[in-house]
Design a protein around this nucleic acid. Structure first.
Lengths: 225, 225
DNA sequence: CTTTTTTGTGAAAACTCTGTGAAAATGTGG
DNA sequence: CCACATTTTCACAGAGTTTTCACAAAAAAG
């Protein structure tokens, strides 16, 4: 397996070196940035950074601003390093899309453990399971079972069903479905959703009825008792 | 808007605190329980708990037993926290009525996102629900119930009723109704409104009388005591 | 009380949207 | 480059919705 790249951003060179050493031992490739601007530039230049470790307090552009800038275009996992006193910020910044916080001083062992945990999750090994009305969706395994019987779904079908279940009870316009299940830059025919719904319904047997048509509007997933 | 109560059950105080902090920031009220028995007692004592987050591994009474006990009497949404080691097979077979499984370690961000998703659909966000005189309009679900009984409305009927309810007590000219419920580029006969009103009234049963005719002018929605 | 105007109503017509099967395009792995 | 699976497009039939229309009923006006 190739090395995963981790971007470490801190204005103190000593801190960067400390983190870098531990991560390097664990087989990661570490890229350093000394301030926020450099971090953002590097991130978008590199393309394949798997995770960012980010100090909050930095000159020029602080950690929060970096998060905002990067979150405009990327969902890369971000770990924030905060001083113990900044506990309140921790929760505020959580809104911005930070994945974890580690407060200084921290043990390198914990840092490495968190990094590994996050990468494990984001690489899809997390086993989150949705379950409703006998339909089980294992997102990690990309597997659906109905009343315990596995069914075969294509990638799009799986994504679509997951979206339905995650938003059960809500009326979903085709527009909305396209924006969430397809990439936002998809400009094809919205009727392709209909075709996928057809296949889903047929593969789901009688539980296909849980996908309701809302005439003139879209679809809704709802389990009827 | 009032706070929704969430019951967090875990034997580790540290884990409870973590979850509690993040949920509190998002405006939820968190109640804690340290073991299964306490959880069940608290749940039935409190009455208005909107969601339960439940660890599987606990002393005395484990997560599964808690689910069983609670499912006897309640359909409250339940999120289960499972350790990675607990194999999927274990979860795969039986369906006790858990809504979602999240495996540890999880990112608080994901947990909160799932909590919000579940509550959004199960209680309907306040702003999305109009309720007056036994008529309940759930805009998000595109669903109307009268005295708790769902009724089937077409797209236009739904839009029209929503417009009436949002402007209850006001006399609405046909002109005005057309401009708001129909597209502004509609140039058909205003009498089509009459037809829709007729259908609405009949589908609404005796509550159809809430839609009053204002002779020579238009209509008005008003709940009479 | 009659006329005029406006609304209620049922049915038909016009229209729109969805389901569906098949074909075309796209992607994937050998 | 070829087979294979998946995704998207297309066209048409059928289902459901919206609009129109004609006439009856109700309300205001004279």
């Amino acid at each position: 397996m190739e090395q995963l790249k981790i971007l470490v951003v801190d204005d103190e060179a000593r801190m960067r070196k400390l983190v870098k050493d531990f991560l390097t031992v664990k087989g990661f490739r570490v890229i350093e940035a000394g301030d926020g601007e450099e971090a953002v530039d590097l991130f978008f230049a590199q393309k394949d950074i798997a995770l960012i470790i980010l100090d909050v307090m930095m000159p020029k552009m602080d950690g929060w601003e970096v998060v905002k800038a990067i979150r405009q275009h990327s969902k890369v996992p971000i770990i924030m390093l905060t001083a113990r006193s900044e506990e309140r910020d921790e929760l505020q910044g959580f809104d911005l899309g930070v994945d974890e916080y580690i407060s200084k001083p921290f043990s390198p062992k914990i840092l490495v453990a968190r990094v590994e945990a996050i990468l494990r999750r984001s690489s899809g090994t997390a086993s989150d399971i949705l379950s409703v009305g006998g339909i089980r969706i294992d997102k990690a395994a990309h597997q659906v079972t109905i009343d315990g019987v596995p069914i075969e779904l294509s990638y799009k079908e799986f994504e679509l069903l997951t979206y339905f279940v995650e938003n059960q009870g809500l009326a979903l316009s085709r527009e909305k479905i396209l924006n969430n299940v397809w990439n936002y830059d998809y400009f094809g025919d919205a009727r392709t959703i209909d075709t996928h719904v057809k296949k889903l319904r047929s593969k789901m047997g009688e539980k296909g009825d849980y996908i309701k048509t809302i005439w003139g509007m879209g679809y809704k997933f709802e389990v009827t008792a």
